[in-house]
Simulated scan of single mutants.
Amino acid sequence: MVENRPFLAFLTHLVLILGVVIVVFPVYLAFIASTHGPGDFMRGLVPLLPGPHMIENYSFMLNEGISSAGAPPLSIMLLNSLVMAILIAVGKIIISILSAYAIVFFKFPFRLLAFWIIFITLMLPVEVRIIPTFKVVSDLGMLNSYPGLIIPLIASATATFLFRQFFLTVPDELMEAARVDGAGPMKFFRDILLPLSRTNIAALFVILFIYGWVQYLWPLLVTTDSRYYTVVMGIKRLAATADSEPQWNFVMAAVMLAMLPPVLVVILMQRLFVKGLVETEK
């Protein structure tokens, strides 16, 4: 049992506050930068209070963008990133939960071998197999398309492993009772396993959504059409342009807008996310 000592409580809160300040202060500076004009950063001093150009900067980036950077308006890139992140997360969860269900509840030859082959793919992320993956996508004509952005990233050995570990904790009596009641494999999966897996699915959705949202290397390789640029690619292009023509107010406005969807997903699904990570019994 942890003793309730005032000094320790004060020290703990002090460390937590310092940690929050260290993490949040750069984000605060990015927000401040997004509300000023470009000339405010030529004076050699970084302002610490919001400026008067917030609505102007954000609306400009959403509707027009910086044409010299070769990127479309930020609204198009945000939509592309949103479609990519949602479909990657949903696709990974569907494939992983079905494969884990088959490995755990169906008796077929070499099922453990199949699981370990899936698990070994953790050692081969897209960055390792980038050349053959790009060759396959190119040969299939999926460059500059949503399938080319999504399908190569849609399998997940990690999610399969987590669902398998959870399914192994489901009592055999539950499956036998469902079988006695006349429930077939899909009915057992739909009516029993899916509700039990709700918190696990929510936790994985948050993690996989952020994974899809922050992808940079793969979208950079398979998209040359600006209509399919993602927001992370766009920020990189804007920052490269900012080196020659300082427009950090627009770059930081793009950064703040790009940060909103993942933050909203985490906030809205926080309760289920935490339960999915800490619960061991359903």
Rank of each mutant, 00 (worst) to 15 (best):
residue 180 V to L: 15
residue 231 V to T: 09
residue 56 E to H: 08
residue 225 D to Q: 03
residue 21 V to S: 07
residue 114 A to W: 10
residue 100 A to I: 06
residue 202 A to E: 11
residue 44 G to R: 04
residue 233 M to T: 04
residue 85 A to N: 06
residue 111 R to K: 13
residue 79 L to K: 13
residue 42 M to W: 09
residue 74 L to F: 09
residue 188 F to A: 08
residue 253 A to K: 03
residue 16 L to T: 05
residue 219 P to W: 02
residue 12 T to P: 02
residue 39 G to E: 15
residue 80 N to Q: 07
residue 246 P to W: 04
residue 248 W to S: 07
residue 168 L to E: 09
residue 22 I to S: 11
residue 252 M to C: 15
residue 52 P to W: 13
residue 253 A to S: 11
residue 64 E to I: 13
residue 96 S to K: 02
residue 52 P to K: 13
residue 162 L to G: 00
residue 31 F to C: 09
residue 149 L to F: 01
residue 128 V to M: 02
residue 256 M to A: 12
residue 111 R to D: 10
residue 248 W to Y: 12
residue 3 E to P: 11
residue 84 M to I: 13
residue 82 L to F: 15
residue 231 V to G: 00
residue 90 V to F: 12
residue 192 I to L: 11
residue 123 M to T: 08
residue 102 A to V: 08
residue 154 I to C: 10
residue 130 I to P: 00
residue 4 N to M: 08
residue 138 S to H: 06
residue 90 V to E: 02
residue 247 Q to Y: 05
residue 239 A to R: 10
residue 118 I to H: 02
residue 59 S to C: 10
residue 265 V to A: 12
residue 110 F to C: 06
residue 267 I to V: 15
residue 69 A to H: 03
residue 186 M to I: 14
residue 48 L to S: 12
residue 177 A to C: 08
residue 234 G to E: 02
residue 37 G to A: 10
residue 98 L to V: 08
residue 79 L to T: 12
residue 202 A to P: 00
residue 115 F to M: 07
residue 240 A to M: 14
residue 11 L to E: 04
residue 88 I to Y: 01
residue 91 G to N: 07
residue 116 W to L: 12
residue 103 I to G: 00
residue 70 G to D: 04
residue 27 V to L: 15
residue 30 A to Y: 05
residue 59 S to G: 08
residue 50 P to M: 01
residue 48 L to Q: 12
residue 61 M to Y: 03
residue 123 M to W: 14
residue 38 P to V: 02
residue 46 V to Q: 14
residue 17 I to Q: 09
residue 52 P to E: 14
residue 133 T to D: 07
residue 20 V to L: 15
residue 21 V to E: 07
residue 116 W to Q: 11
residue 18 L to F: 14
residue 113 L to E: 09
residue 231 V to F: 02
residue 240 A to P: 02
residue 90 V to C: 13
residue 217 L to F: 13
residue 271 R to S: 11
residue 190 R to G: 07
residue 113 L to F: 15
residue 4 N to H: 10
residue 245 E to W: 03
residue 105 F to K: 06
residue 137 V to S: 03
residue 180 V to A: 10
residue 238 L to A: 00
residue 30 A to T: 12
residue 243 D to N: 12
residue 268 L to N: 09
residue 145 S to R: 04
residue 268 L to V: 07
residue 140 L to Q: 14
residue 93 I to V: 11
residue 171 P to N: 10
residue 141 G to S: 02
residue 90 V to T: 11
residue 32 I to T: 10
residue 174 L to Y: 05
